[in-house]
Amino acid sequence: MPQPTPARTTTARPVVLSILTAACALLLLAALYAIFVVAPVEKQMGIVQKIFYFHVPSAYAMYVGFTVSAVSSAVYLAKHDERWDAFAVAGAEVGSLFCVIVLVTGPLWARKAWGTFWTWDPRLTTTLLAGMVFFAYLVLRSFGSVGEVEKRFAAGLAVFGLLDLPIIHFSVQRWRGTHPTVITGKGGGLHPDMKPALLLGFVFFTALVALLIWQRARVERLRQRCEALEIEAAERGLLEEG
């Protein structure tokens, strides 16, 4: 009778991951310098506008996380490969983290810019909706011993959540709300001295979201291997003593 092969699993961190971590630390310092020292204070809103340099890249990181989750879920539904499921979980979790950041930093900025913390502006509402969809995904996945049915249902939910992302993006153009359109609108745009801070913010958040998704997916893969090995060994009665 064949015995289960103990997984030759390495938990060591790949070199590229360490390099990415170091790059993140350097980019963070560079971004903070550009935001607080190089970029001037905004004329109309004052110092609170500096939230913009992390708020917008956080929204972008949220898009990346949710897109990774939805695309990986679609591939998982087609191929039933656990690797894609790991990326789907990682994308949903990291995307939700950045969604929370967007939904908290935005109202803090709005208090100064609009005089209120929250308004049912199309972009704010659709962002909240996306957060709720992927939060539901995480709640579904957090139930103990998730089976194939739960995984597939959660994957479908993530694919459904993807439909909301273009709506968030184009909502300010289709249904003109109060949300700023400095980057994509036809207004005066950004002051030239503000552009390096925003650019560094985008580069930093790109590295950060890639790092977090990669690391979370690695942990999920390890968890999957551990679970598979436990099930296989238990089926063969190898783990009865302990």
């Binding site: 803090l108 208090r111 700023p180 005066g188």
Partner: peptide, 28 residues
């Protein structure tokens, strides 16, 4: 405010203090 961000020129004063909001946002 929605369509353009411009650099400040000269000394001015804020009615709603943005500092605590900024610190709260970065802390979050």
């Amino acid at each position: 405010r929605a369509q353009a961000f411009q650099a400040v020129t000269g000394a001015t004063k804020e009615d709603v203090p943005g500092g605590p909001l900024l610190i709260a946002a970065y802390a979050v």
